[in-house]
């Protein structure tokens, strides 16, 4: 079974219908992406159910769930203040969805025949929607609370007039770039890690198929490298979820408190 077919590191990002086909013209086709989103949802649900025992002395599971929820609520408390309580559900949703999607995408489900793991957050359609929703919350809350005063966000206090001419456009552009940076950061981090692992995985296969002593040596080296990259990627999974949640809460703070 020499891998004559070329290993395509991008194939893992392919979205295919699980039920039906593209040709049917159904825009809401149930794809492998949707399937893994539902798996993420189910995992989060099961995880959270463990925290619903509501005992006075928590067990390990309940303590873990309470640790995550307290982490998010204290993040909003410190960054936004008491008003941040209202935004805990959304930031929690974003954090949990990204964290679980990232981690489930990293799990080696591929060793089970017929199962093709899929990382939901490696699609910019997904990260884009998440970023747009977060950004919309900022815009809606900002204009709702401060009306047109919200534009004072772009004018730092105590700036000389000449500098204002320069700074206001820069602030405005950096504000508009926020949803893109939010979406692309997560998307790029996930896709880069997965491509890297896949490329080194293909090195192992082609190293074993190659003739001569160099092949197995390269395979071994690639394998060691994959272990390191996988560990790093697990870290990145958590960091990206944290960064997304943290930036969302910082942007909400801008909208609520205007600097």
């Amino acid at each position: 079974m020499a891998a004559e077919t070329k290993i395509d590191p991008m194939h893992q990002f392919q979205i295919d219908p699980v039920i039906g086909s593209w040709a049917e013209g159904n825009p809401f086709v149930f794809t492998n992406s949707a399937l893994w989103m539902l798996i993420v949802l189910a995992s989060i649900w099961v995880f959270m159910m463990g925290g619903m025992k509501r005992e006075l002395v928590p067990g390990r599971w309940q303590a873990a769930v309470e640790g995550v929820t307290s982490f998010i609520s204290s993040m909003l408390m410190t960054n936004v203040g008491p008003e941040g309580r209202k935004y805990v559900p959304w930031v929690f949703t974003v954090f949990m969805f990204i964290l679980f999607a990232n981690l489930i995408g990293m799990m080696p489900f591929g060793i089970i025949p017929g199962v093709h793991p899929f990382t939901v957050t490696s699609q910019f359609t997904i990260t884009g929607i998440l970023a747009i929703i977060s950004f919309s919350i900022v815009l809606i809350v900002g204009f709702w609370k401060h009306k047109l005063h919200f534009f004072s966000l772009f004018v730092p206090k105590g700036t000389p007039f000449i500098l204002k001419l320069l700074i206001v456009p820069i602030e405005f552009v950096s504000f508009l770039v926020r949803p893109f940076s939010l979406a692309l950061r997560l998307f790029v981090a996930m896709i880069a890690g997965h491509i890297l692992i896949k490329v080194f995985g293909s090195f192992i296969v082609s190293g074993l198929n190659a003739e001569g002593a160099m092949g197995p040596a390269i395979s071994l080296l690639s394998f060691v490298f994959i272990i390191g990259v996988s560990a790093l990627e697990l870290l990145v999974c958590a960091i990206q979820a944290y960064v997304f949640a943290l930036l969302t809460s910082l942007y909400i703070n801008d909208a609520v408190n205007l600097h």
């Binding site: 809401f28 794809t31 949707a34 949802l41 929690f92 949703t93 997904i126 998440l130």
Partner: peptide, 19 residues
């Protein structure tokens, strides 16, 4: 469309059910 639909469905369930 499929991505948006399923993502919004999942997010809505997480937001309202869990959040």
């Amino acid at each position: 469309f499929s991505q948006f639909f399923w993502l919004l469905l999942v997010l809505a369930i997480i937001y309202f059910g869990i959040g």
